[in-house]
Write a protein that binds this DNA or RNA. Structure first.
Lengths: 339, 339
DNA sequence: TTGAAAGCGCTAACAA
DNA sequence: TTGTTAGCGCTTTCAA
């Protein structure tokens, strides 16, 4: 391992000069600079990041703790979000410290350790919860972070979020315009703030058309295809079958479609199914899925960019960005079948 | 920010004693130890990780660079792999430094920076390539890593891989036993080593049954649902339509199914489709997908565990683990339709 | 234009 | 059982 002193010895200069030459300071003579750079190159020098970090009191690292509700999670949504965050971070010269923790005490301890330990400069907090202990901790400690999703602490923090209320309202309008009256929905966990926005959007949108969902037709899923399949099956077995089912994410919508097709129903004709997220798979499912497109990749990139901006400013303002999602009508929805 | 000297001053001891008490050394009197621990707790002390790392010359961090062939990637496979790696790393007390880089020079520079800069203790290298510059670099530098996938440098390195040859052979046997003769396949990029294992497995398996695939029916996809859809469409438009299409991953198989269904074909009857990976979605697709189950989550966990073991041993042996995949027959395959 | 020296926060060899 | 001291590899202030 080549250190700065090794170079210094070789070129007969002090380590100070070497450091300055390598860091592009102006007060080094051109010849010395060139000599040092060449020698460093020749010796295969790479700065020791840890030592640099200790000195600079900056880690150039962003923390991202994935909440693992079940140990395994298999959701294209996450890889897309991660790509958005990761690519932007790379572009801005930041690294990403990623870990997985089940929500709860372990998770909190890890946040404490990383924030207090100077291991990361800031966090990206995803899947915000109604009363989010992670956010409270970070707000209390005045530790920089940007959330993907809203929370109870919005005035004191920055977030990027999609307008789930609007998104589901678009779904409601779409379904009601197709003549659907018996509509069911499969929500996500109530702990997530986005669940409330989406549910309210759906109910508000339907109310505008003079429609409502009976409480028994609001089922809570867990965002997996499996739960969409199971809850979809349950809804489809009812004597009074809904003519449309609005799932709160695409994965659950796929599950609902399978459940319907298994019963010989033609999705888009006998029953309408909608999703939320707009993952690429929805374009090539059978039938292609009517959904609300949420630019996940972009959200990841924006969240990361917002955080880095805050880290590099000395008096960061709280920023709140609400992205407008758009309705994508494909073939999984159609006119309500009479009856 | 509370430092060790702050505690030392408060309890009137030297920083050494504080450090030792906090790190559980035996040579501290019980009273002193308790006093120190209590004071640390009270003052809200958390060790500065960076300083610890600099001193210990160990980062307790594993590097994982996701190769982003396209900036966005939306694949449940990755989130599952990441969960496996991440959970195991957390369990073993390691952090994960994740970044995304398009394959090529940037990627190599990043590997160089992280390895030489003492930023990570080792790497997990995924999606191994036929002539893998990343692996060559790490082998040359004698930097610890474990690969998920085989490479040209296997004797000098450790890997975990699935037996793709066996997996596709099982598919071949399954299809031939169903009477399929006109079989096509959609492969992945030839740069990946697993592509060759899978392709050879398929061809060998078919050869055993006296079958072969004509070169024109071996198309190369890019592992996305979109490419499965497009190449599937192409195959299905041929006058001599294949009766079975074997895709090299589940996502492409879903695309093929859509293409078939769009043409009014019943998947599992008019045409058989198979995948590879065994992502959870395949269980709830319509029809459920016949595929080869590769325990991705477990592979992630094993890879991580193997790396940590190597990091903690002073004379790590090269380990090679080849996992046996298993065939999962669902409804996307059926007897070859005559004609 | 250069170098000496202090110090980032911590650990550990050594001495007392 | 405790403290002194010397680093880990680097950046940066200050003086020359």
């Amino acid at each position: 391992m080549v250190r700065i002193v090794d170079i210094a010895k070789r070129v007969n200069r002090s380590i100070t000069t070497v450091s300055r030459a390598l860091n592009g300071y102006e007060d080094v003579s051109p010849e010395t600079r060139q000599l040092i750079i060449d020698t460093a190159e020749e010796m295969g020098y790479t700065p020791n990041s840890i030592a640099q970090l200790l000195q600079r009191k900056q880690t150039m690292t962003i923390g991202l703790v994935l909440p693992t509700f079940s140990p395994r999670f298999s959701d294209p949504y996450f890889s897309e979000l991660l790509a958005g965050i990761g690519n932007k971070a790379a572009e801005l010269g930041y690294d990403l410290l990623v870990s997985t923790r089940p929500p709860g005490e372990e998770e909190m301890d890890y946040y404490k350790k990383l924030s207090a330990g100077g291991r990361v400069d800031g966090f990206i907090v995803i899947r915000t919860r109604t009363n989010d202990a992670r956010i409270r901790l970070l707000v209390d400690r005045k530790f920089p972070f940007v959330a993907f999703g809203r929370s109870a602490y919005d005035p004191e923090s920055s977030f990027v979020d999609e307008d789930g209320h609007l998104g589901m309202q678009l779904i409601a309008e779409h379904l009601s315009s197709l003549g659907h009256k018996r509509i069911a929905c499969i929500t996500s966990n109530r702990d997530f703030t986005f669940t409330h926005h989406r549910l309210n959007g759906l109910l508000d949108g339907l109310a505008k058309a003079g429609l409502e969902i009976e409480p028994g037709s609001i089922l809570e899923g867990d965002l997996t295809q499996k739960s969409g399949y199971e809850l979809g099956s349950e809804l489809l077995e009812r004597k009074q079958r809904p003519t449309a089912i609005a799932a709160f994410n695409d994965l659950m919508a796929f599950g609902v479609m399978s459940a319907a097709q298994e019963r010989g129903l033609s999705v888009g004709k006998d029953i309408s199914v909608t999703g939320f997220d707009g993952i690429p798979m929805g374009e090539y499912s059978h039938p292609p899925l009517t959904t609300v497109s949420q630019p996940i990749y972009k959200i990841g990139a924006m969240t990361c960019e917002m955080l880095v901006k805050a880290l590099q400013s000395d008096s960061p303002a709280k920023e709140h960005i609400l992205l407008q999602p758009s309705l994508i009508v494909r073939q999984s929805t159609g006119a309500a079948s009479p009856g």
